[in-house]
């Protein structure tokens, strides 16, 4: 009966309407809408739009949906609540506005949740991504006993203290859609409804095949040797880029900087050496190195789901990926600082 009551007052949003509604909500509040990052990530946080943009002092207001892949969570499309790939809506606000919680609650009203008819709680839940040297404190937002959002104040990223910090809001879109539509299986979620015929296209229509086949691939078919080989190649390339970065720019110490300025004054050449260095720094593909990290991370998750990672390897590989990810974050911060990009 509650379902009908709800439906008559405000028809439940389809999956795509939910997505559009939340995006317009945040766009109206000054967020830039970005597209999903097109490299596999395990969470919206790992997208450069979060992981790298939270670094440094520049203000950020950005929102994007991010399909997030977790190979080990695949269930061949048989479990009604679990997915290999789920969709997050990620909002990053740096610095977080004072009324960030109130704005967030308004966003729930915007998707048809009348708060006075529900129970909402902010329960402590701190977030941590050790591989990214990143953590924050915050809450899981509980709506009638369902965790619908992870709300985090980022404190550290890439092992570096953040100042200013960022507020991160991550909506679990499948959960929210299933809640709004009151269905027991994610696959029953109405993704879209034809405006003319009213015919519903479900989440299952769009994604079930992918869940099944990628579960088979992740758990059974992926070629372990080749995965290791891919991981090795991506890692080597990323490491080479990081090494090059350090060789070229690590020397940027105060004394040498002074020498360079001195050079410039004395030589007065056509291209001032400091400008050249700055330009070289600006062009350096730190973002390329980060994408290689993401590749490594995803391959590692695949190998893990495949049961191919032994105890000792696990610790060692995770430490290596962590070094790369943190190395990239540091390089990114140094690049921002060195090029004076605001």
């Amino acid at each position: 009966m509650s379902v009908e009551g709800k439906a008559s007052a405000c028809p439940a949003l389809t999956f795509q309407e939910l997505l559009l509604r939340l995006q317009s909500f945040w766009a109206e509040r000054g967020c830039v809408l970005a597209q999903p990052w097109d490299v596999e990530v395990g969470a919206g946080t790992m997208s450069p739009d979060t992981f790298l943009r939270v670094l440094g002092p520049d203000p950020v207001a950005i929102a994007y949906t991010q399909p997030s892949r977790r190979p080990a969570d695949g269930r061949y499309g048989e479990n009604p609540n679990r997915l290999y790939k789920h969709t997050q809506l990620q909002v990053i606000l740096k610095p977080p506005p004072q009324d960030i919680q109130e704005i967030y609650l308004e966003s729930l009203e915007a998707i048809g949740i009348r708060l006075r008819e529900h129970d909402i709680k902010f329960e402590e839940d701190n977030w941590e991504w050790p591989v990214g040297g990143a953590w924050g404190v915050g809450w899981q937002v509980m709506l009638d006993g369902l965790e619908i959002t992870q709300f985090t104040y980022f404190q550290q990223c890439g092992g570096m203290d953040l100042d200013p910090i960022s507020g991160e809001i991550t909506y679990g879109l499948e959960r929210i859609a299933a809640f709004l539509q009151d269905v027991d299986s994610i696959y029953q979620i109405v993704w879209a409804r034809d405006p003319k015929t009213g015919r519903a296209v479900t989440y299952g229509d769009i994604r079930l095949q992918e869940e099944l086949q990628l579960s088979v691939y992740n758990f059974e078919a992926a070629d372990i040797d080749k995965l290791w080989e891919h991981l090795r190649l991506y890692e080597a390339e990323c490491q080479a880029l990081l090494d090059a970065f350090h060789q070229n720019f690590k020397a940027e110490k105060t004394t040498e900087r002074h020498e360079k300025i001195h050079d410039r004054l004395v030589h007065d050449g056509a291209t001032p050496p400091e400008e050249a260095v700055r330009e070289k720094l600006r062009r350096f593909p730190v973002l390329g190195a980060y994408e290689l990290c993401l590749k490594c991370s995803h391959l590692f998750n695949l190998l893990d789901a495949r049961g191919a990672v032994s105890v000792t390897e696990r610790v060692a590989v995770m430490a290596r990926i962590r070094n790369m990810v943190v190395g990239v974050a540091k390089a990114y911060a140094a690049q921002k600082l060195g090029t004076g990009a605001a």
Partner: peptide
Amino acid sequence: NTHPEEKGIETVRHGNER
């Protein structure tokens, strides 16, 4: 953490049961 109105109680019960 609320005293929902009559209709709300049903909604909240239903949600938690789900």
